[in-house]
Amino acid sequence: MSEAAFIQIQDLRKTFVMGKQKVHALAGIDLNILRGSFTVIMGPSGSGKSTLLYLLGGLDRATSGAIHVDDLALEKMDENDLGIFRRKKVGFIFQSFNLISSMTAFQNVTFPMRFAGIKGAERQKRAAILLSQVGLANRAHHRPTELSGGQQQRVAIARALVNNPPLILADEPTGNLDTTSGYSIMKLLSALNKEGRTIVVVTHDLRMRQFASEMIYLLDGLVVSEAEYEAAASFELQEKEVEEAI
């Protein structure tokens, strides 16, 4: 490794308490993610991949272990510092877009800059550039309900980029989209990666592999090899066939 990893994760654990039961969503993960990489974290539902993503973005706190992002130790930050960390370092993309329905595409894109204290003129300029970058210059004043799923996700991507974060975290970004829209969103993320941003995408869609520079497979809260993952996936497939037969 020529340089220290952009993200370093050591023995990361996250335990949820459900009633009297403890669920180990992450059971001790060690991981390095390089700056400028396009990392795809693959895993079935319940494997802990979304939990890992939220921990990386400082939206949640680990039960134990350490996360360093760009040399910042997230476990040592208070709530306020985490807010500023998310503002400056991270752009989130969600499966359900999470656009504010009362705001236009343009207003949704400018929204994060209000918390960052960026002035009006600069906000307008950045939002206009980003919306045209994602191919939505002509839909800037439409509300989310007037846009297709793919267009909404493009607005969300533009919103994730406005504060120019070095890290983009995407949680099943194509989960709610048809194949064509999903593909174009992945192409867009790939283009952002080529600009030098570090991208981490969480998905269970095997087709995402073609865009990845790094693949991480998760099963039951642990990082596994590709072979182990394939075996589990085929087992899962068999199970599905059995269920369908019944």
């Binding site: 973005g57 939206l59 306020n80 807010g83 503002r87 989130f92 994060p112 918390f115 504060n163």
Partner: peptide, 16 residues
């Protein structure tokens, strides 16, 4: 509630 979650994700502090 979701909007509050989003605000925090895009950089709003608790104080905001």
């Amino acid at each position: 509630t979701r909007e509050i979650g989003l605000m925090k994700a895009i950089g709003a502090t608790n104080k905001d």
